[in-house]
Every structure is written in C-alpha cells, then in structure tokens.
Write a protein that binds this DNA or RNA. Structure first.
Length: 684
DNA sequence: GCAAGGTC
C-alpha cells in the first residue's frame, strides 16, 4: 500500500463518510471513536477524517468570571469538550505522517475558520500549504469534481472569520459580565445575565413591539354586513370598512335593511400568480411553521439530518437561486423514482425547457435548498418525511407554470348605500398542482353577476369592533424579522431566540412572545451605556470591516482595536453606576419571579397572595401564601407535579380558592382545577 | 453560570 497520503479534514463525521464513499471504496477505522477513512483513488491515497464542528475557540486567559474587561484573548482547544479533545489528538497524529492536506470543511466563513484552526494548530501550521475542496452539496459528483479542482485556501476569509469571533467575544463576554456583576454588587449571588451583538437587537425588536402593544388604545368602530344571494349566497361589506360612529352605522343599517339590492357594478379580471421561489433556510423555517407548526429550531435540525443523508442540499443557505449546474432534469428524474413523486415529476420532465422562478437573495457559497433526487436509504420518520415532502414539492413547484386566477369585484346598491364583495377563483392551477397541499390561496366564489341584477337581501347586520394592537411576534415571525434585519446567521437565529427565553428576557405565551420586566431593564441599561449593542448598526459596521479583510483590503487589528477602545470607555461608565443599574435589574427580576409564581389571592388570610413554590427539601412544587413568614398564613395546597401551571385569575365558586389551568403539552387542552385540596365541590 | 458560531 502507498505509505504517502493526503490528509483530508472535513467539518463533521458524516461529511467525512460521504466524501470517503464518493472517492472510492473506503476502509474505516475508529481511533478514539473518531471515524477515519482510508481510500485510494487514481493512484493517490487519501486519509479522510473530520472535526466535530469547531474544535478550537477563543478562550479567556483570566481565571475569574466576575472580572472585566477581558481583553487578552487567544485561540485554544475548546475547554470541557472531551470529544473535541479526542478529535484533536487523532488528527494531530494523522498529520504527522501526511504529505499534503486538503481542507474539506463546509465552504463558508465558519467552515474556513474550523479548517484553519485544525490545520494551523493540530497539523503544524499546514493551513497555508493546504488545498481547498469546494462543494455545496455532498453528492458524489460534486465531491469528485471538487477534488479535481482543488484550490488555494482563502486566507482573507479565515482572517475575517477569526475577527468576527474576537469581536463577538469582546462585546458579549464583557457586557454580559458587566450585567451580572451589577446584579451581584446590588443583591449578592449570581444571576445569569447576557447580551451580545445578536441577542441585543433581537430583544430590542421584541421590546419595540411590546411598547406598541402596551401603548395601544383600542378604538371602537362599526361594520355593516349584508347577506345577499343570487342562486348562491354571499356576504357583502358596507363600502366603508371602518365606520367611526354608531349613529352612522345605524343609519346604514336602517337604510339598507329590507331594501332592494341591485348590482351597481361588476368587474372581473385575470390575475397571474408566479410560481414560488426556491427555499433558503429562513423561507423553509417560515413555511414549515406555517404549514406544519414546527418551530424554526426544529426545522433546522431536521433539514440538517436530511442533508447528512444526502437527500437535500446544504440547508444553511440564504440563496433563493438554483443554478442550472445542479442538473434540474437529473434531480427530477431521480425524484420520479421516489415515493409518490412520479406523477408530478413526469409533468415537468415532458417539457422542453426547465426554468426555476428564482428569488432575489443569493449566497456566496451555496444554492437554494433542493432535493438531490437520491432515494432515502430507509423510511423517513413522520416529521422528517413532512419536511422532506415540503422541500421536494417546493422545488418542483418553482419549475411550474404561472397559475391564473379570476378575481371578481362587485358593488351592490342597497337602499342608496354601497356594499362590496369580491371573489377569487382558480382558472389554471399551474404550479399549484405541484405544491399541494401547501398552497396558500384563499378561494371564495361569487355567483355569476352583471350590472342591474337584482339580488335577494337576506338581512343586514351591524357589529361593533375595536382596533387591535399589532400582533406579538411568534418564534417564526421574530426569526423573519432577524432575517430581514440581517442579524445572526441562518444557522443560529433560532438558538438566539431560545437564549432570550432561557434568560427570562422574554416569555412565550399563547399570544406570542412577551417581554418581561427583566428584558426591559436590560434593554434600558444598554440603551444608556452601550446603545450600539441593541442596534443592528454594530453588525452592519462589523460586516463592512470583515468584507474588507476577506478581500485583503484590511487587517484584523484595524477592525478590532478601535472597537476595543470604544467598548472600554462604555464599560467604565457602566461600572461607575453599576449599583444604580443593578438596583433596577434586581427589582425587575424580582417582579417577574413574583408575577410568574402568583396564582391568585389567598382565601384564608385574605391578605396574602397564593404562589407556586418549589420545596427545597422535596423539590416538589406546591401552593403557599405570601403571608407565610413569621407566624403568618399557613394556607397551602399540593399541585400536580407534571405539566405547566397557568394562573386563570378565576376563583372557585364553591370555596373561593384560585382555579389554575394545567397544560401537559404545547397546544394541548388546558385542564382547569381548583387548587384547594379539600374543596367541597370535589368528590373524593 | 458570560457571545456567536459550528456540530452531536
């Protein structure tokens, strides 16, 4: 056997496996549990192994977590990560006998950094002499092609990526420590507070919406609706959709009730609906939330799994474009042999030309998400299949014909008042056939009408309504906002939202995402001392700098040094007033805790509030009175130990103890129980 | 028990 080999470093074990299989028949060994593949192709021997994501990161050389500012940073193996440490050991040993190196991590900024660290620190500074494999999908063809056109590594990209790590660490760690320290010097003890370049603006988006909602004053208005028929029934709205006064609405109602209804105008026109654009990750996450109610984070996890099985292309992409080089007809004929896609695929395969309806967004390293056409090796699980099906049908639909709908508008005169209605009907399905059952089009029909037609007036009604505050963000719409503002990466936006929830800066309720008092207090303190951290400007400025570095027009130091100067200045003014800031944060956290735990007023002492308490001893939760201390009220009651407890604000009619809701799963039915253990209404 | 970014 050839003793000389090229060491191929991939980003993750599954990528190493796919690359090895694409290059030939590989022999696998597992030193320290890490897969290593040995394969010979065209007379060259390759030893292929992988990282497990980042193996190195920035580490703090100071020991204590309550010290800031931290400014001396260095790259080091990730601490407390035994798997990463084992991978470094294996790669270092393989590197010693390697004659050359291939950097085969994902082709993007972060992938460049992952490979750079490994080649520099575990392979004796081999980054500069390594060669880069560039692929955007893990299909055999793309991998083989990438090995035929190995290029020099992108040093600018690596430096830009390393600078990004530095800046985020400097801002994030120092400001998070400043917040936590302000809490500690005020109240003592540690409270885990954090802020960063992405958390800051994301929380600020939710705060802005929170204010809009809290400051909204509902304005009454009235609507008048008529039930009409000509063979087919339909309803029509008074032409002024918002009537400001009850007297005006009553006049319309009186003037139109029981009066002749005559078509004053009828128009219909054709509307062309273009096919949907290919999915980028955000589009997929939003659509999966809309049609499957799957959270953005979970959708990404499923897509990642499908990618590693080579069923779809790289999912962490912002592109909405599908270049012809991916081989449209080959993919579609592949799909025609999978499951029930044969019929849909053959509709497209019979065409002379295939042209996808591309969107505007692009990505430097990857095309939009598309199915590879490779059949699944084993049956896909329920949700996995649903997400795969969504991706396949979206891909097919982008090649479909434009659909045509008929849009009709009618205006009806009823006793001198104008009422309007519209109808939407599909004349030609086009791409919609390919995208069922995910098409989002509301059809409602109108009967065949023409000017002068007399209609049956089946009754007119008026109703009072109130203007509504803007809707709360949910996880999908907040993610969409982050995407729109270009904050975070496609791969981490869902995680950032999870962190805000974990910190209790926001809470997720049935209505959506609500900002807590703690979240408000954190934003207020940052607004005063480091306003840039809650604004998207910080990211914008950083991106500009990084792009220069990537293109070789700037260096890391010139981006980092001025940022450190500004940060140090802000931190010192923050520290000067940390007791005052801490006071507000402590108060807000206490308020939230109290708010969350309060179940209702105490029927025994009639002074205190009943709260949910977790026993130190038994770790079980129960209800106790806030008036318990120093010989106060002893009222208490057990609680179910499983499920979410929701205050209802209602009292039991039989015993006047509070009624709570118990939920066992998201969106499941809420069970309402009286918390009083000896409530007379309970049959025991 | 601190960021944001990878991956498991």
């Amino acid at each position: 056997m050839n003793r000389v080999y090229t060491l191929v470093v991939c980003e993750k074990p599954d990528a190493a496996r796919r690359i090895a299989h694409a290059l030939g028949s590989a022999k696998e060994t597992k030193p320290l549990g890490l897969s290593v593949f040995d394969v010979t192709r065209d007379g060259s021997r390759y030893v292929i192994t992988s990282a497990i994501g980042h193996l190195y990161g920035i580490s703090d050389v100071t020991a204590s977590r309550s010290v800031y500012p931290v400014l001396d940073l260095e790259w080091a193996p990730l601490p407390k990560n035994a798997r990463a440490a084992r991978a470094i050991k294996v790669i270092s040993e393989l590197a010693q006998k390697a004659s050359s190196f291939v950097h085969a991590c994902d082709y993007d900024q972060e992938g460049e950094v992952i490979g750079h660290s490994i080649l520099e620190y575990a392979c004796g500074g081999a980054y500069g002499k390594s060669r880069r494999a560039k692929f955007s999908t893990l299909t055999d063809e793309e991998i083989q092609e990438s090995f035929l056109s190995l290029a020099a590594p992108s040093e600018g990209l690596a430096e830009a990526g390393r600078s990004r790590h530095m800046l985020d660490y400097l801002y994030g760690i120092n400001l998070s420590r400043a917040l936590s320290r302000s809490f500690k010097v005020t109240k003592g003890g540690y409270h885990n507070l954090s802020i960063g370049r992405v958390q800051g603006p994301t929380l600020a988006f939710a705060v802005e919406r929170e204010f809009e909602i809290r400051l909204h004053v509902p304005d009454p208005y009235w609507t008048v609706t008529a039930s009409l028929a000509k063979g087919e029934k339909f309803s029509a709205q008074y032409a002024k959709p918002r009537i400001d006064t009850v007297s005006e609405a009553s006049a319309v109602l009186e003037g139109s009730s029981g009066k002749d209804a005559v078509v004053a105008n009828f128009q219909s026109r054709k509307v062309v609906l273009r096919p949907p654009t290919p999915f980028n990750l955000g589009d997929l996450q939003r659509e999966a939330y809309r049609v499957l109610r799957v959270s953005p984070g979970y959708t990404l996890a499923i897509a990642e799994k499908l990618y590693l099985q080579a069923l779809i292309s790289y999912p962490r992409t912002s592109s909405q474009k599908l270049p012809p080089s991916i081989g449209y007809s080959k993919i579609i004929s592949g799909l025609s042999r999978i499951g029930s896609y044969g019929g849909l695929a053959s509709m497209l395969l019979s065409r002379s030309r295939l042209i996808p309806n591309e969107g505007k967004m692009s990505d430097p390293a990857h095309p939009a998400i598309y199915p590879t056409g490779v059949p699944p090796r084993s049956k896909l699980g329920g949700l996995e299949f649903k997400v795969y099906d969504l991706i396949v049908k979206r891909f097919l639909a982008t090649f479909g014909d434009s659909a045509t709908t008929q849009r009709a508008d009618v205006s009806v005169d009823i006793g001198g008042y104008e009422f309007v209605a519209d109808g939407v009907e599909v004349l030609y399905d086009g791409w919609m056939v390919l995208y069922r059952p995910y098409v989002n089009l509301e059809r409602h029909s109108l009967p065949e009408l023409k000017k002068g037609d007399r209609l049956d007036n089946l009754g007119v009604e008026m109703s009072e309504k109130f203007t509504q505050p803007p809707r709360r963000y949910n996880q999908a719409s907040l993610l969409a906002k982050m995407e729109q503002e270009k904050i975070g990466t496609k791969a981490t936006r869902a995680d950032i939202i999870a962190t805000l929830l974990k910190r209790n800066y926001v809470a997720s309720s049935r209505e959506g995402i609500e900002v807590t008092d703690l979240g408000l207090a954190v934003i207020e303190s940052m607004k005063e001392y480091v306003p840039s951290i809650i604004s998207t400007d910080l990211t914008r400025g950083m991106e500009e700098q990084l792009e220069k570095i990537e293109l070789g027009k700037g260096d890391s130091a010139s981006a980092i040094e001025p940022a450190v100067d500004r940060l140090v200045e802000s931190l010192s003014s923050f520290m000067e007033r940390e007791i005052e800031i801490g006071g507000k944060i402590v108060e807000a956290a206490a308020f939230d805790k109290n708010q969350a735990a309060t179940i209702g007023s105490c029927p025994v002492c009639k002074k205190g509030q009943l709260r949910m308490i977790k026993s130190w001893k038994t770790k079980k939760r129960f209800v106790g009175c806030s008036n318990y201390a120093e010989g106060g009220c002893k009222a208490s009651a057990p609680l179910p130990q499983k499920g979410g407890i929701r205050p209802t604000g209602k009292a039991c009619p039989a015993c006047s103890w509070p009624i709570v809701g118990v939920v066992f799963a998201r969106r499941s039915k809420q069970w309402r129980i009286c918390v009083n253990f000896s409530c007379p209404a309970k049959k025991r």
